[in-house]
Design a protein around this nucleic acid. Structure first.
Lengths: 105, 105
DNA sequence: CATTTATGCAGGTATTTACCTGCATGTCAA
DNA sequence: TTGACATGCAGGTAAATACCTGCATAAATG
């Protein structure tokens, strides 16, 4: 997994919306996804390409259509390798913050 | 919390490195953080400003120094409101993927 | 007070990004 | 085969981004 591709992909509201749309209804075509976005099909394609590059979405051709499926694994990896790292120190970090903000340091 | 600010902040490797540095040693000054970055102090400041705007870091002035502290809460929120959403559907989504990639659909 | 040190602020530039238009390709169905 | 439909591909532009240099300010130190 490429951390940077995943974070970059998640760093845009349109792409997060695409993931939301696929979460509601997995396996949608490009056309279906575009109906819920205020942009051209070509722009949406570029966003989807980034999601595919980050391995957050897999695309499969079926006839003249292209179906899109979420891959939840990179999201879990982000959590496991990144969020949890801070999570384990959460109480300590929060204590630091509270202390310094109260001017006790 | 502003989802977009947090995701945007995390979408840059320099800013993730800043969080890592603070995770190793919380409460560092701007100067200390810069020693571990291959860029000018001014550039690092801009990155830190984004982290502060996203509420991922809190900065406190102490004399002529400025101390930086991690705030782990937005990261946890990202997990709670976003990663977990897909997590609950993970097995189903993975099944979709496997099925379609095997050409059974 | 003068000097050093830590940071703030005001710009300027090159790259990346997010969008677009226009045209080409491939598939289905009459 | 022909027309309609779904997508691919090749650019072009405006805005955002990530850097930088140069100078200003404020605090500690002699």
């Amino acid at each position: 997994m490429n951390d940077d591709l995943v974070f970059k992909a998640l760093g845009d509201p349109t792409r997060r919306k695409l993931l939301d749309l696929l979460c509601e209804n997995n396996g949608q075509t490009l056309g279906q996804l575009c109906e819920n976005l205020a942009m051209t099909r070509q722009s949406a394609t570029q966003h989807l390409d980034l999601l595919v590059a980050a391995n957050l979405v897999s695309a499969v051709k079926r006839g003249r259509e292209k179906l899109h499926y979420i891959n939840p694994v990179p999201l879990y990896d982000i959590y496991a390798r990144w969020v949890r790292k801070f999570e384990t120190q959460r109480l300590g970090l929060l204590h630091d913050l509270k202390t310094i903000l109260e001017g006790d340091a």
